[in-house]
Design a protein around this nucleic acid. Structure first.
Ligand SMILES: [Mn+2]
Ligand SMILES: [Mn+2]
Ligand SMILES: [Mn+2]
Ligand SMILES: [Mn+2]
Lengths: 170, 170
DNA sequence: GCACAAAGTTAGACATGGCTAACAATCTGC
DNA sequence: GCAGATTGTTAGCCATGTCTAACTTTGTGC
């Protein structure tokens, strides 16, 4: 139920928070704003879901790339490119194997399963679209690469379509 | 050191990975591609850093909003809007307090410190810019809100400037 | 002003993601 | 084909972020 009663502006023993928001929506909207609350929750749910997959996505994308460029994907190379230590990679690879995205044998390099390959392809597509879009907007390539690496995990298919169209058009 | 020797295309007992990449860069670039490796690592470092702050950013932004809209920020309302359980919020608030972004007394609602308020303001600004940009690109408001909630933590100041300019111009 | 409802805290489980240290396997160069 | 370098694994530490269950405090309605 959360807030139902004349809660808005209790401001009891509270330091009444002068300018928490500097300039917000100046109109003091009426009590009943529960609609946005649920909507927001939906958005945050989605973001949390995306966050759970980010790392796996970065891994499989990178593994596919290494296999393509180097012929194999070794933990030491994965670690170097991600900027983490090898044991961190080893542990994460165990999880990815458990989740069916890769296969691995002790002391050998890593392979993608069909699922892994398919996820990698999807990730690469998103990465490319976001990157091309940012560059076509006028961003320098280094910053574009950095931002794309984070943004790629949080763009809906709809946004991707708009990004793609914009990059082509411009 | 990573890959120095004639490593590329060992493809020993390896299933030689037919079409890991479907269509990549078709030109089989020479062995020495170590430049991009370090660049990539830098990008990933930055993303990991951003990931560490995402949750705190969402919290302070939401807390500022609640204080503005409702007069106070109660754990139960934070939880409802984030879509998580109250004890989760309680524990996270402890961390934010430890980090000096909020103050709180047992069983009372939450306040932002000066640092917290300043971070909240910065987050709100980013959120607004990203949201306005996505909408001006043609995205529907609900999807825009969802995507903005994730993207906002991964846009550089440069990108923000370009987003801002685009939204104004269009 | 008391009983009950609502909100908040604490404890503890479990998964993730980072690290270091110690050990094991593999590979390379003679 | 062996010594030494490189790579990989395992164990274990720590912080975070989620949850449920049990308990405490606060607030409400009569
Ligand atoms: Mn990424
Ligand atoms: Mn990527
Ligand atoms: Mn957010
Ligand atoms: Mn936000």
């Amino acid at each position: 139920m959360a807030n139902n009663l004349p809660y808005a502006f209790t401001c009891q023993s509270i330091p009444c928070d002068t300018d928490a928001m500097t300039e917000f929506d100046p109109a003091p909207h009426a009590t009943s704003d529960d609609r946005p609350a649920d909507l927001r929750a939906g958005a945050f749910q989605g973001v949390r879901e995306a966050r759970r997959n980010e790392l796996a996505e970065d891994y499989v994308e990178l593994i596919a790339e290494l296999i393509h460029d180097q012929g194999e994907a070794r933990p030491v190379d994965i670690a170097a490119r991600l900027g983490v230590k090898v044991p961190t990679v080893s542990k994460t690879l165990d999880r990815l194997a458990r989740e069916g995205l890769i296969t691995r044998a002790k002391y050998r390099s890593v392979f993608l399963t069909d699922d892994g390959r398919s996820l990698a392809k999807e990730c690469r597509r998103r990465h490319e679209i976001v990157l091309r879009f940012l560059i076509s907007l006028g961003l320098d390539p280094v910053t574009a690469e950095r931002d794309a690496e984070g943004i790629e995990h949080h763009v809906s298919e709809r946004t991707l379509a708009l990004f793609s169209a914009f990059a082509s058009r411009s």
